[in-house]
């Protein structure tokens, strides 16, 4: 994402002379950007739907208004992040890449594998892969844990609650 120029035409002119373009709160600045993008996105999308009249509001009425409100709130947050000093720039800080990527990708793999591999293969895979998100990951423990969790889930969801989950991989029949 490109950094927006804070000195654009509708910049905060009312600020005192010594206002600087330094971002005083990183977190607020990027929250503001995010809300502006999402708000205008929703409002833009609402243009596809009929507005109706005020007396007979259509499907686009409510989301368009909300989108504008969100974008406006985002703009306020963004301007505030340039004005008010917060402790040490309020940096976003390090991102926990390992847990984030491991958990999300093991979820995605589970989503793909459940329908073709079935619960008895896809679930231990999920338990094992997600265990790798921790720095304290140990092979043997994770395998044992995965087996126990699969057994437990089968007992609770399939045997106990009678939910219909595919159990076996496609090549072993239904």
């Amino acid at each position: 994402m490109a950094k927006p120029e804070p000195s654009s035409t509708n910049g905060p002119r009312s600020f005192r002379k010594h206002w600087t373009l330094r971002i005083k709160s990183q977190r607020d600045f990027w929250s503001g950007v995010l809300f502006i993008v999402l708000g205008t996105g929703f409002a833009w999308g609402a243009l596809d739907y009929s507005f109706g009249a005020a007396a007979m509001p259509g499907p686009g009425y409510f989301p368009f208004g909300l989108g504008l409100i969100l974008a406006f709130l985002g703009l306020t947050i963004l301007l505030k992040s340039l004005a008010a000093e917060v402790n040490a720039g309020d940096p976003i800080g390090g991102i926990a890449w390992r847990p984030l990527l491991t958990i999300v990708s093991s979820l995605a793999i589970f989503g793909v594998s459940l329908s073709c591999l079935g619960l008895f293969l896809a679930l231990p895979l999920l338990a094992f892969l997600s265990a790798m998100a921790s720095e304290e990951f140990r092979w043997r423990e994770a395998v044992v844990n995965a087996c126990l969790l699969t057994l437990g889930s089968w007992a609770i969801f399939v045997w106990g609650l009678g939910l219909l989950i595919p159990l076996k991989p496609w090549f072993l029949g239904p």
């Binding site: 958990i103 093991s106 999920l126 338990a127 997600s130 265990a131 844990n145 995965a146 969790l149």
Partner: peptide, 9 residues
């Protein structure tokens, strides 16, 4: 490390 895989599952 035992708990969170259970939550995920």
């Amino acid at each position: 490390r035992f708990l969170f895989p259970a939550i995920v599952v």
